[in-house]
Structure formats: C-alpha cells, structure tokens
Design a protein around this nucleic acid. Sequence first.
DNA 1: CATATTCATCGTAAAATTACGATGAATAAT
DNA 2: ATTATTCATCGTAATTTTACGATGAATATG
Lengths: 112, 112
Amino acid sequence: MNMGTSKTSEYTEKEIAIANYAKALSHPARIAILNLLVKKQACICGDIVDELPLSQSTVSQHLVKLKEAGLIKGDIDGASVCYCIDEKEWKKAMAQMGELFQTLLTTKVKCC
Amino acid sequence: MNMGTSKTSEYTEKEIAIANYAKALSHPARIAILNLLVKKQACICGDIVDELPLSQSTVSQHLVKLKEAGLIKGDIDGASVCYCIDEKEWKKAMAQMGELFQTLLTTKVKCC
DNA sequence: CATATTCATCGTAAAATTACGATGAATAAT
DNA sequence: ATTATTCATCGTAATTTTACGATGAATATG
C-alpha cells in the first residue's frame, strides 16, 4: 500500500523565502525599529537604542537580522551608522508575502 | 543630561500583534500548510502529514500554532479533523500587516 | 596625542522553538 | 466488543533565539 507516496523531503524556495521574511518580522523590537525608521523620516542610528527597552548590543543584533533579511541597510557615516529602509529590497519582500496573502484571501474556502 | 529620556518599557499593541502574526508565518512548514489548505480546496487533515517531511506530532504542533494565531480553524468531523483557513481572522491579520507594509512602501525615504 | 562617542562582536546564560516517539482519547469499522 | 484510524498531548533532546555586559575598532573632539 501507499504506492503514491509524495512526502516531500524539502520545502519550496518560495516557502522558505516567505518564512525567512516573516522570521525577520517576528519580534516586536524589530517591528518597532522599522516604524522608527519611517517615523523619524531620517536615518537614525543610536537613537533607536534610546527608544527601545533594550541594551545597545541587543538592538545591534536586531539590526543585523533586519539587514540579513534585506529589509534595511546601514551606511557608515563617520563614527555613526545611518540605517534606513531598503526600499528596493523591501518591495521584493512585500511582493513575495503579498502573493501568499492574495492567494489566501481570494481563494474561496468552501468547508468547515 | 538626558532630561527627555523616552526609553519605552513596552511595545505597542500593534507592534506585538504584527510580530505575533509574523511569528506564526516564520516556519516553512507552516507556510506549506497554508498553501496546502488552499490548493486542496478542501479541508484536509492527516493528509498534511503525508505531504510534509515531518512526523504527525510535529505537524500537529504547527497546526496548533496556526490556530493560536487565529489563521486557521479546525472543526472536529468524526474521527478526523477538518482544517481550513479562517477567512475572517485571516483578513484581520492581513489588514494589520498590510498597514505596516503600506506605510513602509509609501513613505519616501530620503537618506542613505 | 588623549579622550569621548558610536557601533559591532564575543562570550555566556536563560528561554523558546523544533522535532520525535510514545501514549492516550475519541470515533469508525468489523 | 474488538480493532483500526485519527489526532492531541506528554516527555525529552537538540537547536535557535533573545538578551546582557564587556571589550574592541573606528572616527570625532578636545
């Protein structure tokens, strides 16, 4: 029995990509950082630390995760660093997530 | 110095809500489950296990997390359970996440 | 040059997440 | 009634995440 077994051994690229973006957004501190970057309408740096209930090193780690996910970029500007939304990458991210959202929103569910 | 200290001791409700939704989506298995629920256009149950590279108990745990986040619902149907997208809750979730996305997309960043 | 500021990184500890097998409860089938 | 199927939960181990202080590199300021 069980001839047509189709247990996948991996996930699709898309699934992994979306999960990674979601992971980058899965902590309130990182959402707060993104909001700060927009609200201040300027590339703040250590100011982020002042606005969050976290130490400098912890904030730095969150910034690394946002950078790794490609959601923000940080340019060195003298002694300080200028962080801001990476518009181009952000759009790519949102396009991928939006695709999933749209599918789930528009597909008519007819059960339960 | 530092008179106007405004280090927040907490995050906003919105930040926490968005982070929670993102956390629910932060694992490829859970993205795959959502896609399966849509693709099959029917409330599958243990079939999910056959399609994923995970054990039954692990899949069950992922389903719990999706349920806790309010993204899916599961109705008991005899011996099996019928899972499907919770349309109403899903729309609420997407509205909240979409709000953040829109803000970050439309706000003109003028730095870096 | 000496000192201060800004930020990243290292080491470490605590907590959360992920995954599995084993077990059990509930319903269905024989 | 017995047996099989479906799913949740428990216990546990391995890994990842979160957070902090300490330290260090780089630039700016005195």
